[in-house]
Design a protein around this nucleic acid. Sequence first.
DNA 1: AGGTGACAG
Length: 712
Amino acid sequence: MATFLRPGEKRPGAFGITFDLDAGSTQALPVFNKNERLALEEQRRRLPAFQHRREILYLVEHHATTVIVGETGSGKSTQIPQYLLEAGWCSDGRMVACTQPRRVAVMTVAARVAEEAGSVLGQTVGYGIRFEDVTTPGVTKIRFCTDGVLMREMFEDPLLTQYSVVMVDEAHERSLATDTLLGLLKKVQRRRPDLRIIVASATLEADKVVSFFDTSTVRGPKALPSDTMRKPALLSIEGRTHSSQIHYLERPCSDYVRAAVQTASDIHREDAPGDILIFLTGQQECEDAVALLEEEARKVRQGKARLRMAPAALYAGLPAAAQLAAFEPAPRGYRKIVVATNIAETSVTIEGVCFVVDCCFAKQTAYNPLTGLGSLLVAPISRASAAQRAGRAGRLRPGHCFRLCTEADFQQLAEATVPEMQRSELASTVLQLKALGVDNMMAFDWLAPPPAETMVRALELLHALGALGADARLTSPLGQHLAELPVDPRLGRALLASGELGCAEEVLTIVAMLSVQSVWLSPHGQRKALDAAKSKFAVGEGDLVSGLNAWHAWQESGRLGKWAHHHFLNHRTLLRAADIRAQLTHHLRRLGIPIRSSEGDVISVQKALTAGLFMNAVQLSETTVDLQNPSSSGINVYKMLHSSGPGEAPKLRVHASSVLARTRPQYLLFWQVQQSSSGWYEMQDVTAVEADWLPEAAPHVFQRIGARAHIQ
DNA sequence: AGGTGACAG
């Protein structure tokens, strides 16, 4: 049910979090007017986008693609779909789609637009995200959805015939799904000359999108009637945020956590009131900084500062209750200091921030196609990203941003972040494109082409999984089924195998748990207690089976939040895993996969996992002395069994978070690896396996390797 | 003996 707020009333988000609305309209304006609709109209007219209403409509009518650069607060996300509706783009029963990269954004923008359009959410204005389709066929005219949902819709309706206009919002973020969707839309446009595409972006880079969609210079048969139509239009809309004053360090700092704490303390002592937002890279850093700030706060209290410091950490893994502190206004007499990861760059907005302290680093995915291993690395951010962070200070009044690097070093940073498409593993993306009829990956029109080796790796994996045949075409039914399942193809393969092995109940749970962030809480300074909690469920088969045990115990508790918390499990994450599990169960039923329980036969579960993860199999190769800790019993080094790349074989070890960290099984499967600062690849979510299961699960890959493994 | 950036289906 949609709740309506009085105009100007502040919208409380979930858990008290206020999410981005990309509209100046989030500002609380006191409105003393009985006629709510009139007040809303007035608010709409005040948005910068309103000045461009006629121009936008003209451009969309005359150009197949329109690129709109609109800063935050311009109202582009909420207003443009309504302009299109008002101008008649939905009069023939078709809809206007507006995609967002995030679920919360879809929900909040849809709610706002429904309110402005006088619609109950799900009627004229609706939305679609995973698990939730709040639209009414035949009634809904404007549909907000995640870009992933729209792409999935193309499986059923490849030409998106339900829509007259598709607006892709926040395109500057260049997420995997956004880039893929833009490539597909360009393809659809050739067959649907009537389709209009709007690409909305917050910053620069617009030229790239313009030339990408420009078909006026392409030779050969033309899909679009005129050169005007073929040439994308470009329009800029000014925003409504204040600019921030930027400050740089005079000399580089060696420890940005300490530097950030120092800077925040200085601001606190010397500057006007206003909350501080610190950007660091990870959970540990955030918690360390909070601890240092608390120490500092005790000192300041003894001084004569009028305000006191109220530090709070904020990262995605933090349970909802603990996140509250970061979003609630600081108590009277306190200055809130939020120490956040990248989550605060785009996903959530903290009101009242006037100062940003930016370490100018972030953890980013990196993929090495030579080894086939992806990993997380702390890397310098781009200038575009830094600008976005700085902008987080200017929502209330002109703010200040303190970058923890020198100005000269800052100028060395890349202009924009490398698109995710060029630094990710792409098996899932390639599989989906294949399912949508893109036969030649190399010839696909990528907005940013991924490295050829990455595509080769993806094709190789999909081939090994049986999703692609020798002709590199999607196999039927296996490849089609894997494309339809909303999970990584490796996990999809494990699910399908579990049907044959009679353990789908168990593998469904494991796959659902791998589809969410870690279900384990990691409260600061309570590592021992967490270990104790984890060890209650730990078994020698590894982390996935241990997780399965924890899940079963949670089920037996009646899915109690209190129980979960007591056992250091994140209840919210478990509930989301339960949703995913239900959705996957539904898919398996539809595919006719028998859903049975292994009844305690763990080996069948391990074998099903082997069927999906065999490319991630490793063998214990040696035990070396730990140079950082010579008194320890040494490091167990693993090598990948399947590694066709030309590079040096990567050395792997079990991540310390694993239940198998202190054991030394001969053969393991891992789900993911992380590169530690000391250069090791650390395997997370590992499962112990027997060597014979590998050739059994994937004879085409493991015949030789399997034999060699036996000889040893 | 030692720890998990942010998203999406």
